[in-house]
Design a protein around this nucleic acid. Structure first.
Lengths: 197, 197
DNA sequence: CCATCATGTCTACGAGTGTAGACAATGCAG
DNA sequence: CTGCATTGTCTACACTCGTAGACATGATGG
């Protein structure tokens, strides 16, 4: 769809936005190393060099993509109560299969092989979702537990969305949500006996 | 170390083994796309073409690497009892930092961006560790829960070993093991109330 | 000893990579 | 209408990639 593109009236901010959008799609689908600058440029209807003139380099473009992809607060719920159940439901529910392919977790997993990309994503995580998730938790070791929750979510995206493991892809959504919520509850709820130490 | 290599006496099986070993190292460190055939060959002391003559192609070489890397039963414990605690301990304990860089989870995470590699790894998982872990579990949805456990382990490897999230890398190992074991227990133990439905 | 097959290397190709520098076209100010 | 800065393109470079075919070298059977 949208194979031919009319030249688009000259507009710097609109062009920048178009490049950034196609970059989000390309990096999320193919990863940092798998997506080419020419590919990103073509999908935006421009030339490869214009991408570098707007963003400096592929690496800086990726940094902006990561920032945009991790920024929206939709990733994690808002209310502290019942965080586990809400995450579990949102994780197994495949409502919009199109927007699903733009998940920041897919972006992270498919770009993890590149060390530079990993460093960029680490910064973005501790800047955005890390602190936001930590604030939702009570008790001890909130940062540690928040990152464990992120680890579990990432792992589900890996096994279910990328490796496409048989039992997870063809699983009964209700049961899957249940098991997942159980594991998340163990991480989000205040420890059963915080008495120790 | 071992910069210069004496030509090695001609031995087909020994050469094949040397190539396979260096391929495991290269693919685990850089991922399927990040590791080059010339790089694997050089580390084994041979030429790039010899790799293709022994394994057919880079893809088939990767398939053998995945098979070897996922085969050892060390990945998961042996006794059904206390699976959660044993996995958690083995996951946070960094005993041998050299052998740690050969983890099949690192291989999987860093090769996940390539769809062909993902398909190869899916086959290897359902052939090796999937069934083995499933047999350790009791109750309902064992396959589903086994893959969720794999997801959590993968996610911890991602966040702790690749992204190097601050709170997980500098975490108190004891507390981390505790939280992790809690989440794993929620997945490995038979549901608290299997009465529902 | 020497012929012969297995083992290993060399050269090369076609395609793709990120990006630097020079050039062209557009749209707005005067 | 005309100058001119902004916006965009073209060509090119120096690599790296996987792999195909022809060639060289080693060890071993007779």
């Amino acid at each position: 769809m949208m194979v031919t593109q009319q030249p688009r009236r000259r507009d710097a901010t609109a062009t920048r936005e178009a490049i950034l959008n196609s970059a989000v799609e390309a990096f999320t689908r193919a990863g940092y190393d798998g997506a080419g600058v020419r590919e990103v440029a073509a999908a935006a209807g421009v030339t490869a060099m214009l991408v570098n003139r707007y963003f400096g380099s592929k690496e800086q473009l990726f940094a902006e993509v990561v920032d945009r992809s991790f920024a929206p607060p939709t990733i994690v719920g808002s209310q502290p109560a019942a965080v586990a159940a809400r995450i579990a439901e949102a994780l197994v529910a495949r409502t919009d299969p199109a927007a699903e392919q733009l998940s920041p977790f897919l972006l992270m997993l498919r770009s993890a092989s590149n060390p530079r990309a990993a460093a960029i994503m680490r910064d973005a995580i501790s800047r955005h979702v890390g602190t936001r998730l930590t604030d939702l938790l009570d008790g001890a070791d909130t940062e540690q537990r928040a990152e464990l929750i992120l680890a579990l979510i990432s792992g589900v995206w890996l096994m279910r969305g990328i490796i496409a493991t048989p039992a997870l892809t063809s699983a009964d959504p209700a049961r899957l949500t249940e098991h997942l919520a159980g594991a998340l509850r163990a991480l989000s709820d205040t420890g059963p006996t915080p008495a120790s130490s």
